[in-house]
Write a protein that binds this DNA or RNA. Structure first.
Lengths: 197, 197
DNA sequence: GGAAGTTTAAGAAATAGGCTTAATGTAGTT
DNA sequence: AACTACATTAAGCCTATTTCTTAAACTTCC
């Protein structure tokens, strides 16, 4: 049952009681997605908080020259959040797309607000979720600002080593802000270095 | 009274009642800082949530080569938050330093946790505060990733135009990830462009 | 099994942004 | 008020990092 994954994820923060579980269960919608399907497209207002049960997503932005920039990868037991769009009802600046076939659980903005108002515990859990996201994002910014492409690649591999093998290099390159060819060059250099030593 | 600024800031999210105000007042500590004083230093564990009543701060990171990278500026009616450090009791990776003489209000981590546990409304306000921070940070990342130095400068001026005049160029350059000399070059180019048209 | 997409490779080319120096300007401290 | 320590602008040269290009080999997917 996919919803068990959601409960388990919450329980890591604070264990839920039956009432809270029931309330959650009654407003969660399950969806299956194929590769390349979108959860959210640019200019659309995000209507759901989305929990990933299975599969992997990329969140990306298309710049004025038409180039895609991967902002984030989201996989199992993690939340897809387009914070500005869902809370402030603004059109999204980003796309969110499935890289693999996926199962997700969605809660509508309306239902989420009711849940947060009714259960202090859920409000807390969602505060902590967003805090964790904030920390991850700040680390990402730090890396982007102060590291070379090679260092960023190494940081990425360390942080996402489980995911890395599931992702095509083009996607990783877009995350790192370089071309796939250059990523390949970096890998070549690194394997030369390790051979020597 | 500095604490009025804090109440006013909260009231923008959700109006506080007397009990909540009293609880807040009883655990808030006021501090005055001079230029170049630190609120937090690297490797230190952040012990307080800090609200800026007056003055302006920079949050920065020093890389392996000793170069400073400004992550963020924080001014009046905004919160200084070192999320990872305060919540997970980890040593901070960043420094937070006053650029101007400042007045701040601080709540200890312990007191904050009590407040959040006791008052659902405060939990909500702090959730929304961190969400807003997240949105700002995501925009910053987007700019860093997909814009040229000149575009980043223009975005910065748009977003922080009130602050910009209070900040020395060296600080702005460090935020943009370029040298002060190059920032000066960008400004020169831009004023040439506008002269022509 | 064939088409479409990925990865590696390697050399040439572009350019954004750094470095240096120097002269002038501005603020903070005593 | 004067001294000092930073900040800013400018200009020319420079180069490290990436991109671009082409091509061949390898995968994955329907």
């Amino acid at each position: 049952m996919p919803i068990q994954a959601l409960f388990a994820s919450f329980d890591k923060y604070l264990p839920l009681n039956d009432e809270e579980r029931e309330a959650l269960r009654s407003c969660v919608i399950e969806r299956k997605l194929r590769r390349k399907q979108f959860v959210l497209q640019e200019a659309e207002v995000c209507k759901h908080y989305t929990f990933v049960v299975e599969g992997c997503f990329k969140k990306f932005h298309v710049d004025t020259k038409g180039v895609e920039h991967n902002l984030q990868f989201i996989a199992e037991n993690d939340w897809i959040t387009e914070v500005d769009s869902i809370h402030n009802r603004k059109p999204s600046k980003a796309y969110i797309e499935a890289i693999e076939p996926a199962i997700i659980l969605q809660i509508s903005q309306r239902d989420l607000y009711d849940l947060l108002a009714k259960f202090h515990k859920l409000e807390r859990i969602f505060r902590v979720i967003i805090e964790n996201r904030y920390v991850a994002l700040e680390n990402r910014l730090l890396q982007t600002i102060s590291e070379t492409a090679e260092e960023r690649y190494l940081s990425f591999m360390e942080q996402y080593h489980d995911l890395a093998s599931r992702l095509p290099n083009t996607q990783i390159a877009s995350y790192l802000g370089i071309t796939p060819e250059f990523l390949s060059k970096i890998r070549g250099n690194l394997s030369k270095k390790t051979e020597k030593s």
